[in-house]
Design a protein around this nucleic acid. Structure first.
Lengths: 267, 267
DNA sequence: CAGTGGTCTAGACCACAAC
DNA sequence: TTGTGGTCTAGACCACTGA
C-alpha cells in the first residue's frame, strides 16, 4: 500500500463515516492543512485526491477546494436506441435531453478528419469534415458535449455550416432538404477519459471517465454515412439503460461441449 | 498551454507521423532520455505520458517502457441485451465472450454491501453479500473483470460460495435449483476509471476509462433482485453496439413548440 | 489579500524488467 | 547490472477564488 493509497483510504473512511467531518457538498481542507496532517509532500496529496476524483468521490474542477460528492447518488438514466422525438431544435434521442438547451451557440469549423472520425464516416483520413461542437444542459448547467461531424460533399456551402440549422435541425435538413431520407441511425456506446478541454467544458475533474454515445447517420438514398454525432456525459452521473432480457431469449440454447481447448485451466 | 501539454502534443505529433520514430508496438524512450531532450523534470514528463495513456495512445502498465498502441484500431463490438447463449460454464451474454475463459479460479468472499451494490440488490447498506470476482479472457489474456454479487438469503450456505457452481453456472442454479426462474435481466451501461487493482488485473494504465456493464437478475418468482454482475472492459478496446434506429421510430412526433422557457438563449 | 490548486524543479530511493 | 517507471521530498512561482 503506497502512501497516497493510504491517504486516499483514510479520506474515503472519513467520507463514509456517519458523522463525517466532510459532509456531501462541503469542501475538503486545503493542501497545506492536509500535507501537514499526514506529513507528506504536495505531490503525494495530489495523487491521493486524484484517486478520489477518479472514483467520483470528490470534484476538483476550480481552485476553490475539493467538493465532496454523494457516492450513493444513483446515476441518471440515459436512453439509447429507443423512441426518437423531435422539437424545434432537432431530434431528441433520450427523454432527459428534451429539457436541455445549448449553453452557448455551437462552434463550427472545418478540420482534417482524424482517424476515428474518418473510419466512422468512411472518408479518407485527413479529408475535410465539418465539426459542430455544442455544450448542452438544463438551464445553462452543462452536462453534455455533442460533437457532430459531416463530410465535405454533404455539408460544404450549406446551412449546416451556420450556427442555426433551422427548424428540426441537422436531421430535417438532411432528410427533407438534401435528399438523404429516411435516415437510419446506428448507436454505439463507449468510455473515454475527459481531455483537459472536455473536463473544463463539463466542469469535472481531469481524466474523469466519460460515457461516449456515438450515433452514425446512414443516408436512406445513398446508403452512405452522412453524419456522426459523438455525445459525452459524465460517467459518474449518467448510465445507459437497456431493454430487459427474459428467459424467452434463451430459447436458443447451443450448449458448447467442454473440450480440452475451452475447458478452464483450473476450477 | 502547459509544458506537459506541449510535450504530449509533440509526442502525439511524432506518433502520428508517417515515418514515426515510435511505430506501433515499439516502446517510447525512457524518462531519462525524454527529460533530457525536453529539459523538464520527471514530474512534467510523467504528466505528459499520463495524458497519452488516458487517450489510449500508449500503455504504461509494467516497468518496461511505454508501449505504443494503434490509435486507428477499431474498438471490438460487445453485444448487450441481445441473444443469450449458454455453455458449460454459464450464460453468455455476448458473442465474443463465448471464447473467453477464466484466467484463474474465481475468488469468493462475503463483504458488507457498499452503497451502489446495496441499491442494485435492494438490500440494506452493510448487509452481507457474496462477491464472486472473475478475470476472464481468450486463452489467458485478461480482457474482462466480472464481479457478481448475491444477497445472503440467496447464497449463504449454497454451492454459489464454491469456486465451481456446476453445469450452467450461477443462473442454472438460481433458475432450476433455487426456484428463482425464469430470471429477467436488466442491463445498464456506464463508464468508470480503472482502480489500481483493476488496472493491474487488466494490464492497462492507471485511470484507464473502463466500460462498465451492469446486469441485474430479477427472480421470476419473488420479483426481487437475486444477483447483479458488473463487467469491466477496457474502454479503449471495446464498445457496445446497439440496435439501429429507423425513421419508423420517429412516427411519434410530438413537436415541442418554441416558448420563452425552452428557446435557446442565443443562436 | 490570503488561500487554493496547478504547475514545475531537482534531487532521492526503490522494485522490477531486460539484457 | 543497467535502466525503467513508481514513489516521495522540499522547495518554488503562478493564476485564480472567495472573503
Amino acid at each position: 500500500m503506497t502512501r497516497y493509497e493510504e491517504i486516499a483510504a483514510e479520506l474515503r473512511r472519513r467520507l463514509d463515516a456517519d458523522l463525517t467531518p466532510y459532509p456531501v457538498g462541503s469542501r475538503l481542507p486545503g493542501h497545506s492543512q492536509l500535507t501537514a496532517e499526514f506529513s507528506v509532500g504536495r505531490g503525494v496529496l495530489t495523487e491521493a485526491l486524484g484517486l478520489l476524483a477518479l472514483e467520483g468521490r470528490i470534484r476538483i474542477a476550480d481552485r476553490s477546494g475539493a467538493l465532496v460528492l454523494d457516492p450513493a447518488a444513483p446515476p441518471q438514466p440515459v436512453d439509447v436506441g429507443g423512441q426518437v422525438r423531435r422539437n424545434e431544435l432537432g431530434y431528441i434521442f433520450n427523454a432527459a435531453a428534451g429539457h436541455w438547451r445549448p449553453t452557448v451557440p455551437p462552434t463550427r469549423r472545418w478540420l482534417p478528419a482524424p482517424p476515428h472520425i474518418a473510419r466512422l464516416l468512411n472518408v479518407p483520413i485527413g479529408s475535410d469534415v465539418l465539426e459542430r461542437h455544442r455544450i448542452v444542459g438544463p438551464d445553462g448547467h452543462p452536462v453534455q458535449i455533442a460533437d457532430s461531424y459531416l463530410p465535405a460533399d454533404v455539408a460544404r456551402g450549406t446551412v449546416l455550416e451556420a450556427a442555426s440549422t433551422g427548424p428540426g435541425g441537422i436531421y430535417d435538413r438532411l432528410e427533407h432538404d438534401f435528399g438523404h431520407g429516411p435516415i437510419t441511425w446506428h448507436p454505439r456506446i463507449g468510455a473515454a477519459a475527459a481531455t483537459p478541454d472536455q473536463a473544463r467544458d463539463l466542469g469535472v475533474s481531469r481524466g474523469t471517465p466519460l460515457l461516449v454515445l456515438t450515433r452514425i447517420s446512414i443516408s436512406g438514398t445513398s446508403g452512405r454515412p452522412v453524419e456522426v454525432t459523438i455525445t459525452y456525459l459524465d460517467g459518474h452521473r449518467f448510465e445507459v439503460t437497456g431493454q430487459s432480457i427474459t428467459r424467452d431469449d434463451t430459447a436458443v440454447w447451443p450448449t458448447t461441449p467442454a473440450t480440452a481447448e475451452n475447458r478452464p485451466a483450473a476450477l
